[in-house]
Design a protein around this nucleic acid. Structure first.
Lengths: 241, 241
DNA sequence: TAGTGGTCTAGACCACGAG
DNA sequence: TCGTGGTCTAGACCACTAA
């Protein structure tokens, strides 16, 4: 694989280095070539290499040591869910060693409650779409997600949200909006507040509830995501440096 | 305030810009001066300004718009716990609008269980210190933290860990080790597994349990942190871009 | 079209760590 | 001491947005 100019160079370098780490060209705990060597090898500036390396270091995949070199973290093989990029539940499930699959449960139009209206910065009673999905880890229900999208932002008010898309892509396709950032509130919820799907094979354990608000770059809340996360089956792990 | 060379320039620029945001020199939702203007103003290169701005953008404090400018996020006033830096519970409590205080509950020497030994990559039965602390939000117990430190890494085996320090500073002072990165696992725990201190003023609600592992830059686990977090009183919020 | 942020370069000097 | 990563510069060109 070689560098091609059309796409952003840093992205290409990131991809190449990511492949080398995943493929074991740079094995765990080994020292990778120096920044200067990589820059020479890939025919880009050292700054560009550094920017690519910085992303991996921030995710904990690479450990950088001044005066020594850059090492592949032993965490690299874990493929834990990294924090910083999109929170992709399918990847989270994969990272925990399960085969992910998605089931669309429900999709309906209704009006916003007072609570939802406040979080979305709209008026109560405004129409919105809700999309309910269930993520399976192998054959077990693992994450139940409800996404809530105000119809006011839809380009085509008649459009029906695609239940197979990631929320970012869904907002892009139906509203033409790009998610700039998102907030996630994490709570523990007790048995009585848990969706029925989870009540079959679990003892009366609490679950995690994630409440996400997706904003565009103008600081406007675009959508909500309310997820019930089976922390008994899936580890919810954050890494920070 | 002016730039001084001895400390890292980016850090100084970051500090200055942070103050201006906090102090309202750059009010929420307003556009801040362009990168070039800031570079000229502070007598540093545009690259340096960009690095400083990038940190705020990653934390969601600033919103950058190509072709337009850089805006202060309305989230800025919330002072929510940002993700990426240290997870400082006192700051979390402040950010939720309470006055934080810390009580040292217990400090003892014992040997590692099999479970602890595995997480710390040591052998079971090795001696370690445990430090139990309780963080109050106003007058209510809000976070219960147990830190576990293997004595093997202590410079002075007789040293007694200081119960007032942040875990990062504690490790620095007692082991001479710097924390390179940390992982946090988040779970929901049921009533029966919750520390007694919380059982007085709560209904039988579950809580959040955070299990942190602190690593040095050589990928060696230095310490554990096990926290019970009252999500009914304190919002646990992550922001990502 | 002018000005913004986004990307990239080539070079410099420094702080640090291993040998 | 030598090579590493860490920091910083001055400049370039591009993509995008608002006026």
């Amino acid at each position: 694989m070689s560098i091609q100019r059309p796409k952003t160079i840093t992205a290409q370098v990131t991809e190449i280095l990511g492949q080398r780490i995943r493929d074991g060209v740079y094995p765990a705990n080994s020292r990778i070539p120096s920044e200067s060597e990589l820059a020479e090898d890939l025919q880009v500036s050292r700054t560009t290499v550094r920017n690519a390396l910085a992303k991996f270091a921030a995710d904990g995949l690479l450990i950088r040591k001044q005066g020594d070199g850059t090492y592949v973290s032993s965490q690299a093989s874990g493929i834990d869910q990294r924090y910083g990029g999109q929170w992709d539940f399918s990847r989270v499930i994969e990272g925990n060693g399960f085969k992910p699959s998605i089931q669309m449960l429900d999709r309906q139009q209704r009006t916003a409650t007072a609570d939802e209206a406040e979080q979305l910065n709209i008026e109560a009673g405004q129409p919105l779409w809700t999309v309910d999905r269930l993520f399976y880890a192998d054959d077990f229900p693992a994450i139940y997600v409800t996404n809530i999208l105000p119809i006011a932002y839809f380009h085509n008010k008649q459009a029906i949200p695609d239940g197979t898309l990631h929320i970012h892509d869904l907002l892009d396709s139906v509203c033409g909006q790009t998610v700039g950032y998102a907030t996630t509130d994490i709570e523990a919820v007790q048995w009585s507040d848990i969706p029925r799907v989870f009540k079959q094979d679990r003892r009366e354990r609490p679950m995690l509830k994630l409440t996400e608000v997706f904003y565009n770059r103008d600081n406007l809340p675009l959508a909500l995501g309310i997820s019930f996360y089976d922390d008994a089956r899936l580890r919810l792990r954050l890494i920070r440096s």
